[in-house]
Design a binder for these strands. Structure first.
Length: 145
DNA sequence: GCCAACGTTGGC
DNA sequence: GCCAACGTTGGC
């Protein structure tokens, strides 16, 4: 799950402990939140558009998809005038801090590792801010630390 | 700051 | 419903 650390980082999550994952405005990701993500799933926190791009830590999903309130807030960057209160268009899960990795697992080292060629974050042109990985990939990724 | 690649928009 | 044009994203 990707976030720009200037906006929200693994350190911010450690501080707040839990966080509603707002601002996702992509239908595929919304559907993934709604249909596939489960409470107690683990997730990796990815820092994007920053100095050291890569996996920064680990989270747990503690609540399934619910309405993202920023879609109703005209002052929010994420405001969506087409979203109606009774039929919210955008959803998000709630996550809990699990751990910050001792170091960033960088995107280049993931890209250079033959085990991870199937990961969407390795694929050129991927535009999903949240992508699914398998249990096996998750275990292998954590071995890189 | 560049730019490839994508998602969205809107005219037809 | 198509698709060109546009805006956005995000790694580099």
């Amino acid at each position: 799950m990707k976030s720009e650390p200037d906006t929200f980082s693994i350190d911010d999550l450690e501080q707040s402990e839990t966080q509603f994952w707002d601002g996702v405005r992509n239908y595929r990701v919304r559907n993934m939140f709604r249909d596939k993500m489960q409470v107690r799933d683990r997730a990796l926190f990815y820092h994007s558009s920053c100095k050291e791009i890569g996996l920064a830590g680990e989270m747990e999903i503690i609540k399934g998809a619910t309405a993202d309130s920023t879609q109703f807030e005209p002052k929010s960057d994420y405001y969506d005038p087409g979203a109606k209160k009774d039929t919210p268009r955008w959803l998000g899960p709630t996550v809990r801090f699990v751990k910050k990795f001792k170091r960033i697992i960088t995107l280049p080292e993931i890209k250079n590792n033959p085990n991870f060629q199937k990961l969407l974050i390795v694929e050129k042109g991927n535009r999903l801010s949240v992508t699914e990985i398998t249990r096996a990939e998750y275990i292998e990724l954590k071995k890189l630390i």
